[in-house]
Design a protein around this nucleic acid. Structure first.
Lengths: 188, 188
DNA sequence: CAGATCCTGTACTTTTTGGTACAGGTTGAA
DNA sequence: TTCAACCTGTACCAAAAAGTACAGGATCTG
């Protein structure tokens, strides 16, 4: 039988693509097989508990990316202005190259809502808190920093929705640009 | 055979509730039957083409509500400050009483994405354009008005996501409150 | 009260679903 | 070269899915 030298991370990546394109609930095993190019045997080899395992693996991978490329830099930064710019650039590039879909946001809808509620909450809390702490270091009060961080993340997420609705991606880039500008304006 | 005097608008309302709670894709006919209290016979009587018809009917009803309660008042308003406040109040009340879910936003994800792309786009375009026109009447430039309208709608939509993720609804109210404040600040 | 229309439950068919079993090829280490 | 661990396709299964058919009760018109 053929062998494709498939590593688990590759499988997870392919799965993420399918979930972003079709949504988690409506990605049936047959669709996944076909679109990700992974046979049923391999799927259950890598993810013994089926779709639930697949979703968890995909979410973990996304989270790891954000942890490394967004949250950690935000926490480590000393220059708030530079860190805010770096964050918006990283995030904008990420979502534009991934169908303008945030899988964590998608997980706040649908059947599995409850199953992943903790992971989803942790993702957003980490993001908002890391940004808020940075803004605080940049001179904002605790409350002001937290509100501005929430508004920024909400703006980005809403930007993804509008961009998908409009069917372009300039809408998203425009909105994230202004989110960044608003943040920078608060850093005197 | 029993008779429940079910009118179509009632059925649509019940359907909307199910779709908001479980998501469109994972609402099977049996789930709908059970949760909406509508038998299979009635379902196919009112919606001959199955789930697709149901989704369209629900979307139409939501759209009609926004048209009457949000878009039209926005277009008719002469007092921009008052109209902005009325909009945020109406929208906040609406989503809080409906599981913090925007069905049009949900439709930018998943399998039926393409099927309803036009309706979804029209909903957001109408909202953004009505608000932008109002802001322009309030003294903003064309471009400035459009950008602020986009940012406001994005903020509201992102607020819904964050509120669902956080599992409270004060997050949403806080975000919409600041969206309103930011809009009012632009109206000199 | 007669008759047409409308609404609804039940039972049914067909297709698709997620999940299992497993044989057999591939690979890497000894 | 041998052997175990690993990966993968195929065939299969039970359950659940969407959708159909239809009889018959409810309702309204006149």
């Amino acid at each position: 039988m053929p062998r494709t030298l498939l590593e688990r991370p590759d499988a997870v990546r392919a799965l993420a693509g399918v979930f972003r394109r079709r949504g988690f609930e409506s990605s049936s095993l047959s669709v996944i097989q076909q679109e990700a190019g992974i046979g049923r045997g391999s799927l259950y080899h890598f993810f013994p508990n089926g779709k639930k395992d697949m979703a968890r693996a995909v979410l973990d991978q996304v989270r790891a990316w954000f942890e490394d490329e967004v949250f950690a830099p935000l926490r480590a930064a000393t220059d708030a202005v530079e860190a805010v710019s770096a964050m918006t650039k990283a995030v904008a590039d990420y979502f534009v190259s991934r169908e303008n879909v945030c899988l964590f946001a998608a997980m706040t809808l649908g059947e599995e809502k409850e199953t992943f509620a903790d992971e989803v909450k942790a993702y957003f809390v980490d993001w908002v808190d890391a940004l808020a702490a940075l803004l605080q270091r940049g001179g904002l009060t605790l409350e002001d920093a937290h509100e501005n961080a929430l508004d920024a993340v909400a703006g980005i997420q809403g930007g993804l929705i509008l961009t998908r609705a409009y069917g372009d991606e300039s809408t998203f880039l425009g909105i994230t640009g202004r989110v960044e500008r608003r943040l920078l304006a608060r850093l005197s």
